[in-house]
């Protein structure tokens, strides 16, 4: 039985993506990849915050007004997962904190100085998962002007989802990589793991480490190229829902966990914990790579 390696590169969820897998023949590979890509498109269409006619946008319209809305089971499950992250991070991982980006527009070339505290405080009024009640399929916002952003969950979940679909198609050796959020279905057919090289943030083209993946997920939070300097301090571009300010501490965290979505949220929580991030990851007992800001 000769398995052949197939590679497919595409763009989804705002990132370069790649699926690598071993299949019996081209037909099996093509069918499996088509299914996975279709699923990724569906997830992107539903949960992207850049689209204006999707499920997320509909729910955020209610969030802006306050009140309640009925959501489907998949959305409930994602929110329950977000709730688990919120609980495990003592409120740091908060899917309502995306609003804060309005004050901290890092991407804007005009970004030079921090916003005024008044601006931040005004936004913090409308941030807080504790103001959201999920009961069955009913989602209720007890304040107006809120917003939900699943950015820290959906792409990672999508990698797991796609890997699972490929697994169901009989693929046992492969890897789904959505812009660095990775889920492996199984090692190379000879048993060798997928070697994932982690870039050196300081010297481009160099790698500081290689992580091996068999069936695990791998995700990175933060971007070492996008640290910001305010006064003497270097900040990451991750915003704390408690202070409304970027977090000082780590520039980037890469975590390996059984599921990519878990790796992603663990990485984000570690970033949010700032100086305590490493310690928290140590207690989590996962394999990780952390880079200081």
């Amino acid at each position: 039985m000769g398995l052949q390696l197939c590679q497919f590169s595409f763009k989804a969820m705002g990132s370069p993506c790649e699926i690598r897998l071993y299949a019996e023949d081209n037909a099996q590979a093509t069918a499996a990849i088509q299914l996975a890509v279709a699923a990724l498109q569906r997830l992107e269409n539903r949960y992207s915050r850049y689209l204006t006619d999707n499920e997320l946008h509909k729910i955020n319209a209610i969030a802006a007004r306050g009140g309640s809305v009925t959501i489907d089971d998949e959305f409930v499950a994602l929110l329950q997962y977000a709730d688990a992250c919120y609980q495990q991070s003592d409120g740091l991982f908060d899917i309502t904190s995306g609003l804060l980006r309005k004050a901290w527009n890092f991407a804007s070339p005009q970004f030079l100085s921090p916003p005024s505290q008044d601006t931040i405080d005004e936004l913090l009024e409308r941030v807080g998962w504790q103001h959201v009640v999920l009961q069955g399929n009913q989602l209720q916002f007890s304040r107006a002007g809120m917003e939900i952003d699943l950015g820290g969950i959906v792409k990672e979940y999508a990698a797991d989802y796609a890997a699972n679909l490929l697994w169901e198609q009989g693929i046992r050796h492969g890897l789904v990589n959505l812009g660095g959020d990775i889920k492996a279905m199984g090692p190379h057919p000879d048993g060798a793991p997928w070697e994932i090289k982690i870039r050196d943030p300081r010297t481009s083209g160099r790698h500081i480490a290689t992580l091996s993946l068999y069936q695990e997920g791998l995700a990175t939070s933060g971007d070492y190229e996008r640290c910001i300097r305010i006064g003497e301090k270097r900040y990451s571009h991750i915003l704390s829902p408690k202070t409304g300010w970027p977090v000082i501490g780590l520039a980037s965290v890469t975590v390996k966990a059984p599921q990519c979505v878990v790796a992603g949220s663990a990485a984000t929580i570690a970033m949010l914990k700032g100086d305590q991030g490493r310690h928290w990851l140590d207690t989590l007992k996962v394999e990780y790579l952390a880079v200081d800001a």
């Binding site: 797991d160 992580l211 007992k285 996962v286 790579l289």
Partner: peptide
């Protein structure tokens, strides 16, 4: 940078996240 090797034991927080992740459809 530092790589920390994990152990087989899952901690409470990790178990909690994994359990919640396994409740997601398609996983």
């Amino acid at each position: 940078a530092a790589i920390n090797k994990s152990s087989k034991d899952k901690t409470d927080a990790l178990s909690a996240l994994l359990t919640a992740a396994l409740a997601l459809p398609g996983i």
